[in-house]
Design a protein around this nucleic acid. Structure first.
Lengths: 131, 131
DNA sequence: CATGCTGTATTATTCAAGTAATACGGTTTA
DNA sequence: TAAACCGTATTACTTGAATAATACAGCATG
């Protein structure tokens, strides 16, 4: 079962997008494996205190993307091809790393300076990661 | 005069935010210097084909932040303290670099892999920069 | 002085996105 | 069989943000 422990909708980002990202990150990071079950729409919505349709929206989009699979009468499961998994990894990277690079170049920052900053941020963040 | 040549509101991001960012980037990158004049609200709005109040909103927020200065009866000018300029630089970096780092750590990517990707993106982006 | 510019404030409108309410039909299981 | 779950579809509501319309007052310059 894909875990939503510690997951809680926060910030201004739409709940359904946070759910989608959580599942994508779980897959990419290896926290979830192919074939793992997802919570039912209703149970997850009850868990989060939101409307079932919000979860449904997330699951539907994930299914459209070919990331999860829903067999009628059974549970939804994680179901990604290796190629798709790789492309999601790239997509997640691009959505952040690429925009960071673009904006730093726009600011006329030298590559050396940029990477110095990035490395500092990395070390600081990694230290704060004690899940 | 701070240049808006080549500037055109694009994408889904609000126009007034794009104006704000353009001015901030101009300041940080060195394209604009302290004391440089900004286009009047009305002229810039005419230039962009938008409502003057949209420009006013951007200018007002910039003034609230202590980035520009408006003397009554004269033009608005760029007016930032060195400290403020440094803090904007950091702010712009954090808004992109930090979130990139966070998301890569979340994906369980190794630091080496991450920086390999970033470097690749950097070189590709820099090459495409022929302003 | 008068025309035309400036910045400012208040209010309205528009629009889209997110979320929720509700209902339908099917499957499992006790 | 009946209760409890499941996924799905349609529709409605709400809210907030972005932008625009309009009006007011001051300064500059011809």
């Amino acid at each position: 079962m894909i875990s939503f422990k510690g997951f809680e909708p926060t910030g201004s980002s739409p709940i359904y997008l946070q759910i989608i990202k959580h599942i994508k990150v779980s897959a990419v990071s290896g926290d979830a494996a192919n074939g793992d079950e997802l919570p039912s729409r209703r149970s997850l919505s009850a868990m989060l205190g939101i409307n079932p349709n919000t979860v449904q929206k997330a699951y539907r989009l994930l299914e459209d993307e070919g990331i999860i699979s829903t067999v009628p009468g059974a549970k939804s499961i994680l179901d990604i091809s290796p190629e798709k998994l790789a492309s999601i990894k790239i997509e997640l990277l691009q959505s952040t790393a690429l925009s960071a690079v673009k904006s730093m170049i726009e600011m006329h920052i030298t590559k050396d300076d940029a990477f110095r900053v990035m490395e500092e941020l990395w070390d600081k963040e990694e230290k704060g990661e004690s899940k």
